[in-house]
Design a protein around this nucleic acid. Structure first.
Lengths: 105, 105
DNA sequence: ACAAACCTGTTTGTGATACAAACCTAAAAT
DNA sequence: ATTTTAGGTTTGTATCACAAACAGGTTTGT
């Protein structure tokens, strides 16, 4: 069951594997909707990085981004798509396997 | 215990976090010594990538690389340093925490 | 009313990174 | 002797992450 499949571990989903996006994904997986500022504070990322990581998640089809005005201020709302939820769950399963390998099968 | 520390997850050790190096590290953590060809087959990486990732692990002080001739053929022996072992263990602990977060605390 | 500061983000610039393909050196084979 | 094989390394390219600069609009201060 072990043998040659250590190498499979390199096939992890890079979109989610990046720590910044892992944090964002973890939040959006549980919350269903969050705005930019909430994510900003919760993730601890800078605005610039948050912005570009959100774009990347959107490009991947993992989240949707809605822009609107709230109380005359711009607001960016994010929520995870079904595809994103699936990818997140698969990533989680993948990491679980990795952990088993790391602990010596 | 939860609150603002999701952001800590971004502080994972990038040297080990890279999937290719995670595979290499996982092998070297358990094996204590392995040569290039063994790692090549076990990891499924290309020669070029294996070579450069090994160099990066060496630069980080996580592994040592010894070159010698065996049966008139060049042989590259790698083994994990105490620093590397420590880093690997910390990474593992870190991932464990991440898993907990991903599963909703 | 005008300017300065603030809010909510985006774009740009720079340096690091990963990957694959080309390359290198010595030994075996033909 | 020339080609092929073995064991790797170097190079080239494209992507990426990050921080700093920028932008569009709003509120505050005077």
């Amino acid at each position: 069951m072990n043998d040659e499949n250590l190498h499979d571990l390199t096939e992890v989903d890079r979109i989610i594997h990046e720590p910044a996006r892992l944090v964002i994904s973890t939040i959006l997986y549980t919350v269903k909707e969050a705005d930019f500022l909430f994510l900003l504070h919760e993730s601890g990322l800078t605005k610039g990085n948050l912005s570009s990581h959100l774009s990347k998640l959107e490009e991947a089809g993992y989240i949707t981004i809605q822009k609107r005005f709230n109380d005359k201020k711009p607001q960016t709302l994010c929520s995870m798509t079904p595809l994103g939820r699936q990818a997140f769950e698969e990533y989680r399963a993948h990491i679980k396997k990795i952990m088993q390998k790391m602990n010596g099968e």
